[in-house]
């Protein structure tokens, strides 16, 4: 049987274990440039970086601004750069950064509005450009029932449909950082998701968007988008496959006489 003192020690240890969070602050009404602020928060085994921030907001400094919602890796709003890596802070544990300090910055490559809050309007503008919805040559009437799909047809695109629009891939992508016109990993993965859907006929329409300079060919296959993706969507694969698809279509168009083209 364990010694009672030992157990008591362990309990106090758990409570008194602390970690320093080095948080990027930017208050546009006061600062010209961002700065750092350090907060010491309890480091509990089950605490995530987001729990640490919530502790700061509730107990220490109510002025800290950041986005979060579901705490379970589904809403995609709590993405931040933790120790330089884009992460969902609700799925990143403080104990992995012990003994600290752990730095928390707003997602890289996006303009900062305040503290850890970034401006996502560029992303919001880009997503609809690839028409991420089912496009039909001929819309079937509601009376004809739903569009059926086999499990295999579902598997063909399922991986690319897991995206939660958390934008970690944009924060990890050096091409997007250097060339903000680049349409970016998540948008292309989403285009691939609908292209691979057996119910969709919009591939040609999306190809016309993605074949442009700021489309797939701006990507140099760094592969960081895939590495940071919390949902294992593999946007890098989607982009490379799109390049191949666009190239095949271009060659077809170039070589085949008009009559033989699909």
């Amino acid at each position: 049987m364990a010694d009672a003192d030992e157990i008591a020690d362990k309990i106090t240890d758990e409570i008194t274990d602390e970690i320093t969070m080095r948080v990027a602050r930017y208050r546009p009404d006061k600062d010209r440039d961002p700065g750092w602020q350090e907060y010491t928060v309890p480091q509990r085994e089950e605490w995530t970086v987001l729990d640490g921030l919530n502790h700061v907001k509730n107990e220490v400094d109510t002025t800290l601004a950041y986005r979060w919602s579901c705490r379970m890796g589904i809403c995609g709003s709590c993405g931040m750069n933790v120790d330089g890596e884009p992460k969902l802070t609700c799925a990143t544990f403080l104990s992995d950064y012990a003994p600290g300090p752990v730095t928390v910055e707003p997602l890289a490559n996006f303009p900062v509005i305040r503290d850890l809050v970034v401006d996502i309007s560029d992303f919001m503008e880009k997503l609809p450009r690839v028409s991420p919805w089912i496009i039909r040559d001929e819309e079937q009437s509601v009376d004809d029932g739903e569009y059926l799909q086999t499990p295999e047809e579902l598997d063909a695109y399922k991986q690319f449909s897991m995206c939660i629009n958390c934008m970690l891939c944009y924060a990890a992508c050096p091409v997007y950082g250097l060339e903000p016109e680049f349409i970016g990993p998540a948008a292309i993965a989403l285009a691939e998701r609908y292209d691979l859907d057996s119910r969709d006929h919009g591939a040609r329409q999306r190809l016309d968007v993605l074949i442009e300079e700021e489309g797939v060919y701006g990507c140099t296959f760094v592969g960081e988008c895939t590495r940071v993706c919390p949902k294992h969507v593999d946007p890098a694969a989607a982009i490379q496959r799109y390049k191949l698809k666009a190239a095949q279509e271009s060659v077809k168009m170039f070589l085949l006489p008009r009559a033989l083209r699909r």
């Binding site: 009404d29 950082g177 250097l178």
Partner: peptide, 8 residues
Amino acid sequence: DLHYRRTP
């Protein structure tokens, strides 16, 4: 423009 923009 009060946004803080970072360039690599």
